[in-house]
Amino acid sequence: MISIQNISKNFGDVSALRDINLEIKDGELFGLIGPDGAGKSTLMRLMTTLYVPNQGQITMNSRHTVKDYKAIRNHVGYMPGKFSLYQDLSVEENLAFYASVFGSTIEDNYDLVKDVYEQIAPFKKRLAGRLSGGMKQKLALSCALIHRPEILILDEPTTGVDAVSRKEFWEMLKKVQKTGITIVVSTPYMDEASLCDRVALMQKGEVLKVDTPEAIMKSFPKKLFAVKSENQYALLNDLKSNEHVYSVFTFGQYMHVTLVDENGNMEDLSASLQENGHEEVEVKQTDAGIEDMFMYLMNLENE
């Protein structure tokens, strides 16, 4: 279990994390979701003993990150934001090096990395610097796993990787999770949140909400409408200036809109938009996603 209590971290005058409290259960696939600058990487570096907190404490399977940092370093797998591979070493050499650093060998724990490594094995003689983003990511994951850690910490593993590789990567994480390893993963992509068991929504150094993705989506407190017309730009401006509208965000080809009045309905909204001269107006009620919840919480926070 990872227990994060009252954690604050400052860099000079800049406060990167403020009073974070989290509990991550054994064997859980836990997501830290938030935009750049939310403090995800800082929190992960605190967990991996790379930073000392200004306040509060973290225990990783009851080991204290400051006092017991040496013990933690034997049992944590960490994949930093930049894929930390040696560009001038081949795929195989990278993996062998990381294995030996942890006093292990590729053969010892091959079963654990087999699924991941087999996909890049055809390129094992290739230098890591010449791999595609997706392959680098798989190699970095193999390297972080090769010593059979208790806890795996992945800092934005899918950033800058193509959609297919991202999907494959999450499937691999699910398999790794089945071996009993606790996984903490951060991502700026809201759509990846639903793949985690539980997520913490983070913003500007604070945790806005912690729950399962389903519960977070269900807890969306307002009716949500998806709106579309033939002139999206004018639509956005009109919705923003409409006094009945509480919030509006562009969401793919639709605008996601909530109303001030809880009893407001689609027909009124549609009618007022047609008054503004919009054609082909389409309004439908929709289910909130993680991103809607995130935007809603951010709005609350800013008010």
Partner: peptide
């Protein structure tokens, strides 16, 4: 610079 030191630090070395 390459960020590999970060992993070396988080290792038992």
């Amino acid at each position: 610079e390459m960020g590999t030191m970060e992993v070396l630090l988080v290792s038992p070395l």
